[in-house]
Design a protein around this nucleic acid. Sequence first.
RNA 1: GUGGACGUGGCGGAAUCGGUAGACGCUGCCGACUUAAAAUCGGUUUCCUGUAAGGAGUGCGGGUUCAAGUCCCGCCGUCCGCACCA
Length: 868
Amino acid sequence: MSDDRNDRQAARFDPAAADSRWQQEWAARGTFHADDDSPKPKSYVLEMFPYPSGRIHMGHVRNYTMGDVLARFRRMTGHEVLHPMGWDAFGMPAENAAMEKGVHPGDWTRANIAAMREQLQRIGFGLDWSRELATCEPEYYGQEQALFLDMFAAGLVYRKESAVNWDPVDMTVLANEQVIDGRGWRSGALVERRKLSQWFLKITDFADELLEGLESLDQWPDKVKLMQANWIGRSRGLRLHFALDGGPLPGVEVFTTRPDTIFGASFVAVSVDHPLAQALVAAGTPGIDAFVAECRRTGTAAAEIETAEKLGFDTGLSAVHPLDPTWKLPVFIANFVLMDYGTGAVFGVPAHDQRDLDFARKYMLPVTRVVAASPEQAEAPIHDEADSTPGLMVHSRFLDGMTSEAAKAAVIARAESEGWGTGTTVFRLRDWGVSRQRYWGTPIPIVHCGTCGVVAVPKAQLPIVLPEDVSFDIPGNPLDRHPTWKHVDCPKCGQPARRETDTLDTFADSSWYYIRFASGPVDRPFDKAVAERWLPVGQYIGGVEHAILHLLYARFWTRALRHLGQLDIAEPFTGLFTQGMVTHETYQTKVDLPATPEEKGALGTDTVSVSTWVAPEDLDRRADGLFHRPTGHPVHVGRVEKMSKSKKNTVDPAPILDRYGADAARWFMLSDSPPERDLPWSEAGIEGAARLVQRVWRLTEPALDTVDASNGDISLRKLLHRTSAGIAEDVEALQFNKAVAKIFTLLGALEKAAPSPDRREAARTLILLVAPMIPHLAESAWERIGGDGLVADAAWPVVDPAMLVDDEVTIAIQVNGKLRDTIMAAKGAPKDELEALAIASAKVQIILAGASPKKVIVVPDRLVNIVA
RNA sequence: GUGGACGUGGCGGAAUCGGUAGACGCUGCCGACUUAAAAUCGGUUUCCUGUAAGGAGUGCGGGUUCAAGUCCCGCCGUCCGCACCA
């Protein structure tokens, strides 16, 4: 190797060496250790902790890079920053791995954590690893059990019979997402609706608070707040009583949001699961069993519900209209009435509700219009569409002529005074079912005793640790069939009893980890005073897929703790940011295969075109197009889509980090796309990012650091201050793509600038500006120019406000709104001066051709518009 | 069905209050350096006509305004959430 070549090698920034060197340096110095007792203002930056699947993917890299830039920036602006990392380590995949590979879920999970921790450290995130936690360790879930017991003692936990999706082959409960076309996703067995005794948390106690609390979250995306509001689904209405003529029950309670339409009622319908329906089944009502069976057969899948026909069973009973004892309404059991919303019973108003109309047409029930847009519309017939337009009441006796709003109030007032109903609020939100019949989760700290009933485990006995010796070779809950684990003595009476074998939903684990990060003593879940020094989380960053469940549960958990007096925080996350996905082009080959006999019949062709996804690394880019290297088939480029294994368009971060270094990967994640939108991965993009890193490095070459003190460079100095101020704003707003653009602009100017003290200052400052984004390069460059200490500990550049003001501005000259010329003028130049300058413009003169303008609009420091 | 978001060059996108559309990056093209390549640097890249100079242009159609990517009305398209919620 020639000397020449050696020199050029040395001139390049070597990420492989620098990355590990600085990562070790930060770790050795404890640079990112968060000090509970620091007098500095506190800043808590948190990204949603990962599930330890085994490998970091690009989505993680993007998510954690954003948080890291903000966290490092906050450090530079004088904050004591808490930026922790942990593992959402319980859950199904570990049990699946146990079943498929015969490994213990704990071993599998801990090995994954070790591998992913190393990968995260390889990217150089400024994390306080001393606070690392994994939800699958007893130190964590034992404290969660303590919190569960506190909630239990406060009456926020209860047990009730609840319908679940039961897989009879795997002998387990399935989440709705795990039921595909009515079959278990693993076993393929037809899923049964089974009633099981399940544990619930009373999130509905907080429904109002959780809804109203949304209003205080001004640093949350409106979209997420709206989704939560819809999920909570508060409706105001009337709960009223219909007396029944005969039958097993004296009456039914019905909920309606439209009490105004009460005179349009033509039937009452109850859910199949309603006590009235069940009583009729018990009484052996003819034909009812077949109807109930029919209803049960209809799945719960969205598509099925949409197409399902409205079905009813006429009970033969009649309900007495509360406002007219002589008016009797038929009572049906109907498949479209939900038991777990309102009271499980409705009155049908076909004229103004599409569902009720479909039902009424099928069973030939009367359709009476009670709302009309205008008096002339009072008799307008209802055909196939229910009329939901607002208007005035008609055919409604004492309500006639009122608006719906007035009529609602009138009906509620009358119901309350006559005692047959009350104005109420109902929620769509249901209590949170936390029971899971699985092994790899937090054991619920409860004992069932034949004498004492349900008994809470005393806190002194916590943690209830999962048994290690479990098998996954047969279906079912390993905890339940473990020979000894569940057999314990009752903590109250000492008699032999049975331990609860359900474990907690993993959403419980992620509902309070951010508190445990802030304070994690060994003997209790957290220390109130210490936790409150950090909380609430200032900026929380994660995927929008958690907009409802995780974020709602965490908000509930925080409020429950406040209710218990354990934490004086209402909302856990002051700022929320939902980042977009990392996407990639997809590639497909199309191959004609011989058709099977069935396909021949269906399509009438001998061959069938089959598209196969092709991985990017198998592509052969030739002059005549794209080809699949292993097969030689032509490849066509498909849509840009979320990286997924099934479409083979994933890019593994590990080789990218090895090849381009951590900084290039980080820079790519921040460039171009706004962080809330999807980011298309591209080879060209990562190469551009790697080039940027080298460009910044070249600027700090000592050879360039010559100072010609004779001339200052005021325009570079101004640009520098503008850039520093702008980047600070952009980073605070998480608009990294804009910050990146500003860096490029400064870089371009710096490269062209002649040596001067200002140039030297700008190069130095540039290192500070890029330090949160590409920290390894920044450390190396900082060291190279002789900066003090680590750049990670340096302060953000001070912006001189005077440097942000220009004394000359460009004024746009428009004629009739069209740009014709621009002129330079002193900032703050008076209007008449600008007007004179504009009219004097040669181009304006040509257009005006001697005529005088009709009107001139002058916007100071911006433009002059001449109306000709 | 229903609620919401979005629509700007070849691509990702920028444009703070209604005030110079296309910053910045990527790609492509032309050129310099080099025996050559890599690396790097310079130029160019919305479209049309093109010498100059113009003209058109932010999904489509209207409107308000001196001025509209931005505001209003009506369409079209894409994406997301919820979904028999009484």
